[in-house]
Design a protein around this nucleic acid. Structure first.
Lengths: 216, 216
DNA sequence: TTCATTACCGAACATTTTGTTCAGCAAGTA
DNA sequence: TACTTGCTGAACAAAATGTTCGGTAATGAA
């Protein structure tokens, strides 16, 4: 979709700073109140739409219609639909990561995530529906896996692990996110506290036995 | 993309039998050797392409170029890119489901999947890369969850479960598929047998303790 | 082998979506 | 108040999607 050579190098061309394929990053923008408002409108629109239909079938036109924002404005902020999605949910992933990291044991912070999920039901629902969950997963995965692995290493001390630690951490994060997804899909049939208890009952005995460590 | 009224109702119009949005199903085709060959070419092309780039960025044009098949031929077989993907991988999901179902305990058949994965490395890699894994997951999920739940019920006998069985089954399938994905992403650093052992070591103690049942 | 069937090809075409440009306007900032 | 910067909206190029159809050739059955 290359365009013809622009007649004149436009003056206010801090628009794009990107190589489309390399996906270097999003566009530059100030913290102007207008910019913030626009971004908010766009992300809200995307979340709303993701509650209604699949991510794939949402067009940029849908988004800007819903957000009531000009077409060029969209492209002034984001490279494309994908960029909007990731920059939105990467943030969510970071938030979640922080929730995990400021406690003593990552395994004891899952409750917070369940609770946080309940409080932000709409966002998470959209997230699970579309492909958002994968992006958050990625953002969260590194964080959570690293944290868990460090924790296990510390608890193991000098002893070697009878099982590769990444296997354990991926097992745990995968199971956790799957349960979270199930819980949302079924409209949260039990309390966050119950979900957390179930998760830990399913996880801790095996892990403690296998690595010969104790939690809490 | 409605088209203008066709001048004449075309004679050979067994092309489409679908409501595009309702996604009723794919198009009708005989088991003509030519049809089979075309489908094979198209699915092979898709798998190849998914090994090279993201599913999203693959166009119908890419596929038919790679498969060396006419544009109209593609649309004679499939509704769109999505349809090709699903009809291909739903089949794979069913195969996997059968692998699971013809043994005594579903939990003891994971080894077969790990082995099967290793033997069909390219297919599974493409599957994990693109969105294929979700589709297989869906196809497999119902099968596996139902199977596990029935097994648990039978083992429990009259006793009530201290935890909703869907929670257990989703936990297990989620953890399993995540491990499978990790294993592939890291180019299978350990043997299928090891992976299976790890998985069972992480799963069985907790489940046996929680439900007070025994496997094997 | 013959013959009717049916899938394929390929090009033309309508339609939709994407991404870019720019001049004028208006909201925000200092 | 100025002046800086983001927004609008329309126009446009490019690309991808999906449909049509006449001609060709592979297929399977008699």
């Amino acid at each position: 979709m290359k365009y013809k050579e622009p007649t004149q190098p436009t003056k206010r061309a801090n628009y794009a700073l990107l190589n489309r394929k390399g996906k270097l990053s999003m566009k530059s923008n100030k913290n102007d109140r207008r910019s913030q408002r626009t971004r908010q409108l766009l992300t809200n629109a995307l979340v709303e739409l993701m509650l209604e239909k699949s991510y794939e079938s949402i067009t940029v036109q849908d988004i800007i219609d819903r957000a009531n924002v000009g077409r060029s404005t969209f492209y002034a902020h984001y490279l494309d639909k994908e960029d909007l999605l990731t920059s939105q949910f990467e943030e969510a992933g970071r938030h979640l990561g922080e929730e995990f990291s400021d406690g003593d044991s990552a395994l004891f912070l899952t409750l917070r995530v369940f609770q946080h999920t309940r409080e932000n039901y709409r966002l998470y629902k959209a997230l699970v529906w579309g492909r958002g969950i994968e992006i958050v997963f990625k953002a969260l995965e590194a964080h959570l896996n690293a944290h868990l692995e460090a924790e296990f290493k510390q608890k193991l001390g000098e002893r070697p692990s009878p099982i590769p630690l990444p296997v354990v951490t991926h097992y745990i994060t995968g199971a956790f996110l799957t349960l979270l997804k199930w819980w949302l899909d079924n409209n949260m049939p039990v309390t966050p506290e119950d979900m957390d208890r179930y998760f830990r009952q399913l996880t801790i005995p095996s892990v403690e036995g296998l690595l010969d460590i104790k939690f809490k």
